[in-house]
Nucleic acid binder design. Structure first.
Lengths: 170, 170, 170, 170
DNA sequence: AATGAATGAGGATTCATTCAT
DNA sequence: GATGAATGAATCCTCATTCAT
């Protein structure tokens, strides 16, 4: 891929992330192109379909979260990860209403990272032994989406997560 | 309002609930009309805007939940309510996808009912005293939306709720 | 169907026939709408797809030819029919480049009429007994399309048909 | 012209012939480039316009037919030529679909060759004396296009050509 | 009140063509 | 000369909404 193409791909993803975060997945591809400073055709050259563009955003978003997770660990790495994810989600609703994109499937990317955090938390005794990855993921997804749709403030977020953390601690 | 108009209003809401549950909020108003067995103009006479139709569905859905809640109580009325809500949500994605409709605002309807269930649970000792309604609502919304987007099976739903119930119990 | 809808359907077909005759099947549906004096949505309400519009034109065109054929007969009804068809085709290229529309299938409409003309011509001795409908249709189609693409003048058309008629006469 | 340029020109024409034969003249130039194994820019360097590319194909196709004709002669050289042309046409719809390219003009290339075949056939007595080149060309074009659009099988093709040959024989 | 045809802005996608690399 | 990314006009089609019947 040529360097200008590489640069444009990045710009488009950035623009798309912002646009879809603001306006939801129903926002027009034209607006993405406008914000990215490219012509509409360029967007479609990089992502032949709107759905593929949405999927690409989701993938990048999750990749970042996974990378983020990799830097955590210890007794409350999992808790930190939950907090950051919720904050992220509230900022970028993208994660949520990605119509037509298989969110659960894409979520697979996070399984390993979250699994590792869970293990460490269990080793440190912060999380009960019989808690398993699937419900942790389920709680993570739930709480992220709840935050997006609920418009939580910082305090509510804390109190909500506190309940979940208590539940995980048993 | 004439009786046939009354009847049509009901039919339209029923149809809308089903259509939007199946196809998401992006489904066309025409399809709603078709399923309701009325002409498109009739839909717009009753609900001048698609958003108003969506809001009406949401309102009715929440009213039902509130009514449902009113029939519960005791030590685990709150738990039962959570379980039913999640099951509902998974069946009818409607609650979730309602882009453009202020879900949190509409949610106000449930505050009282949930507040009451919470109080009873606390009186029975099933839920910690320092848990307050806002985070209960937040958890409820989260877990409903999580269920919708995650495609949980019965077991995952149980395990996920179990964590939350443990957290509420402290 | 309401009377205005009926009227519009007719207008659209007329407009489409003219537009596609002039510009070929690649002409835009917008232009059809413009000429018909309706909005683009109306065209698509009547013919949900451009292909269906093209098919409808073709069908109507062939229906007219069949009707025309029904009024002919005798020793050289078939010859007259060939001549008229070729003249038609030259005027309206439509018959020809209807991409995406199964011309041969639609042509079925003419089979009966042409079969009847052929029988009469054979009874009158103008056409050999061993000539069968399929090749008559094949010749008809060929010569129509040839006329369209070749831009024949009246004399060339006569001389070309004369060869075919001689061939049919054996 | 550099030798690689020469080679590319040939590859592009081959690819174009195949692509347009398969998909019709509406096929994209990109696909031609892909099949030719060159970049899209190269196609446009050689043929500044899609129409020029189509015209070039047509020209080459006709040149080949003319060359083919040159190898024929005698009593039924003309008949053989008709048969081969029709077979060709059915295989490669190209000849037909070339919208926007003046087929009749390009056809001029064949006039001499066909004229010669006609003369020989007339000398041999296989074709009537008063038949002239224009109608022979007209019949040839007609029958080629008929074959393409009609999807004739071998037998129908034989029977159809038989009528024409009989007509030419008078 | 209901009907359903008409409207037309909006949006995804394609593709010939240009031009920087 | 070749490459292939970018352009952007053009096109098909959808759908919320209006309005004549």
């Amino acid at each position: 891929m040529r360097s200008d193409a590489q640069r444009n791909r990045g710009r488009i993803l950035d623009a798309a992330e912002e646009v879809f975060a603001r306006r939801g997945a129903a926002a027009s591809t034209e607006e993405v192109a406008r914000l990215a400073g490219v012509a509409i055709g360029t967007v479609f050259r990089h992502f032949p379909t709107k759905d593929e563009l949405l999927a690409a955003i989701l993938k990048r978003l999750l990749a970042r979260l996974a990378e983020d997770a990799a830097g955590l660990g210890g007794a409350d790495g999992l808790h930190t990860f939950f907090r950051r994810s919720v904050a992220q989600a509230a900022a970028k609703r993208t994660v949520v209403d990605l119509v037509g994109v298989s969110v659960p499937a894409a979520l697979g990317q996070l399984d390993d990272a979250v699994g590792e955090l869970l293990r460490q938390a269990q080793d440190a005794g912060t999380v009960r032994r019989d808690v398993r990855p699937p419900e942790v993921m389920a709680l993570l997804v739930s709480v992220c989406q709840g935050a997006v749709h609920g418009g939580w403030d910082a305090e509510l977020q804390d109190r909500t997560l506190a309940v979940i953390f208590a539940g995980l601690a048993g």
